[in-house]
Amino acid sequence: MIKLYGYPPSHATRRAALIFKELGLPYELVKVDMTTEAHKAAPYLAQQPFGQVPYIDDDGLVLFESRAIARYLVAKYARPEHKALMPTPAGDLERFARFEQAVSVEMSNFDVYMGALSWEVIFKRYTGVMTDEAIVTDLLQTLNSKLDAYEVLLAKNRYLAGDEVTLADLFHLPFGNTLGSMGYDLLTTSSRPNVSRWWKDISSRPAWQAVKENA
């Protein structure tokens, strides 16, 4: 069984766990307690030199970075009904290109701003540092503008890369869920009906519901 080394509440750990669930692939979660700096200890750094979670051990193959893990799992373990999660150039070059575009959109136009917003609103509390409300306001304005562009894309297709769900859509789930838990309705506002429809669709998937709170 593949071992997933991670901190159950972490966004990246849940992103990887989500793909295990999507594929119906069993895994053993090896908990890494980030509250005690276990991810910075020498044994952990020997496997993940950046001191981040998660990483996997698949019969000796050690791999880190949640999106790389997701791609690997689909490439190796996906059954025919899961192949749409990650289009390939050999299968359909245009679908592959749209998929790569969508993956880039998530990284460049969503993840980076959500990471900063989560730091300001949530994680600063644990370090005893005050939230900078000016930064929060700026980040929310930026995210609103980015999601306006999402609305344009999703008016044309059901999902970001076409009419079938892909990893690019699923990668949004951990931070998208946190956005709602922080009290911001950017993904569900009636002013962006296509984004709202898309978010309701992907966030209701059984695989996400299984790891929504913890991997």
Rank of each mutant, 00 (worst) to 15 (best):
P49D: 13
N144T: 13
T127H: 10
T88D: 03
L139A: 08
T36A: 07
N109P: 02
A97P: 00
V32D: 00
A116Y: 15
D148F: 09
S145L: 14
R95E: 12
P89Q: 09
F20K: 14
Q47G: 08
P43Y: 09
A84L: 03
K21T: 01
R67E: 15
K146Y: 14
A70N: 05
A42L: 07
W119K: 12
A102G: 00
A102K: 00
L45R: 04
M34F: 15
L143G: 09
D57P: 10
F96E: 01
L23I: 11
L73P: 02
E106Y: 04
L139K: 08
A42Q: 14
L139S: 13
F20A: 03
E22L: 07
L93T: 15
T88V: 02
E94C: 11
P49Y: 07
V62L: 08
K76M: 10
S66H: 12
D59G: 15
Y113G: 01
Q101D: 14
A102M: 01
K40Y: 12
G91A: 11
V62H: 12
L147V: 05
A75V: 04
E81G: 08
V32A: 01
M130T: 07
L139C: 10
K124S: 05
G24P: 10
V30G: 15
R158S: 08
D57H: 11
F96H: 15
E94V: 11
E100H: 03
L61G: 03
V53M: 11
V121T: 12
N144R: 15
P80C: 10
R125F: 04
M34E: 05
V121D: 02
E81V: 06
V53E: 12
D92A: 10
F96C: 06
L85M: 09
V53H: 06
